[in-house]
Design a binder for these strands. Structure first.
Lengths: 164, 164
DNA sequence: TTGTATCCCATGAATTCCCATGCTATCCCT
DNA sequence: AGGGATAGCATGGGAATTCATGGGATACAA
């Protein structure tokens, strides 16, 4: 599970260290045979100027999701083009860095510093300054909506689960 | 289940012993295969100057809750950013300590002593002095709302019957 | 050549690991 | 029940390892 937020430097050669925690996540997939690729997969978000990424396991999940949609559903085709076609495999070097293709860095307006954001099954890569605003906003909104963060009871799960 | 209140010292290296009871809780998850991580996960509360935490099992529960929401629901994104992105995996050393990242200690204004508060499925980490005021307040409010503390009847009542 | 991508090695800082200690609660034996 | 041994827990400090980062060398393509 990708957790935590981590800012690393993007050097002149376009390399950036992937946080060790993140490497451990995809490393576990590799060890357990879920994946055969020692690295991450990254693509430009279709929702803003940042990148999305994950391990091969995530891509498999998206593949399964899309294969359950109608083959000629326009949305399915659009997702395939926006995610699979735009994504790049970035493999780790001996020190746990990847080299970020220029197009991706430009798309997300990355220079100097980049922030990795763990979001559970996937992660995002942001320009640190751009993420600041997002983060402050998220905290405020999380606080306002905190009544919706109600875990189902583990013992006798009630029917409604009701955020009312 | 995380129970009781426990104050331990935060040393110069930022280490603090996790109460043995708490370690037993996450240890059980580990042994039963619910989790594969021997430690706790901690993040800054978005509701005050204290930390929230739990085991990986808790995070999975939150993940399940969030993945049932619309992927682009603003509240879902806010929770993901406020919890997953801000949380840190803290693994136990051989003596059951974790090292608390500086940002988290600063956020909760922790120095010298920290108080772990067991709250069932999750726990909180407070500056002991700050928690005092909170605690008195909680007792008063619990008293005012005592009529609402009505247990649901259990379908298969166990034999112990025990008003202990 | 020039730019680009990989691989290898070096380094400082931060983190983790390991061992030792005092204290307390528990157990066991008489 | 006394009293001593024992094990678990919280804490301190030093050593070793990992992590992020910079730079040089090498290979390949434009």
């Amino acid at each position: 599970m990708f957790l935590s937020r981590n800012t690393n430097t993007l050097d002149a050669k376009g390399r950036v260290s992937v946080p060790a925690d993140f490497r451990a996540v995809v490393g576990a997939d590799l060890a357990s045979g879920v994946s055969d690729f020692d690295g991450i997969v990254v693509w430009p978000s279709f929702d803003g100027a940042y990148l999305e990424g994950g391990g091969m396991a995530l891509l498999r999940d998206y593949q399964a999701l899309l294969e359950n949609m109608d083959p000629y559903d326009d949305a399915r085709i659009a997702f395939e083009r926006a995610i699979f076609a735009e994504s790049r495999r970035l493999s780790f070097d001996a020190n746990g860095r990847v080299s970020l293709p220029k197009e991706l860095a430009e798309y997300a307006e990355l220079n100097g510093q980049v922030t990795f954001i763990g979001l559970g099954r996937r992660f995002e890569i942001w320009n640190p300054t751009k993420y600041e605003a997002q983060s402050a906003n998220a905290r405020r909104m999380a606080r306002e909506n905190r009544h919706r963060l109600r875990l189902a009871s583990r013992v006798n799960a009630p029917r409604d689960g009701g955020a009312s």
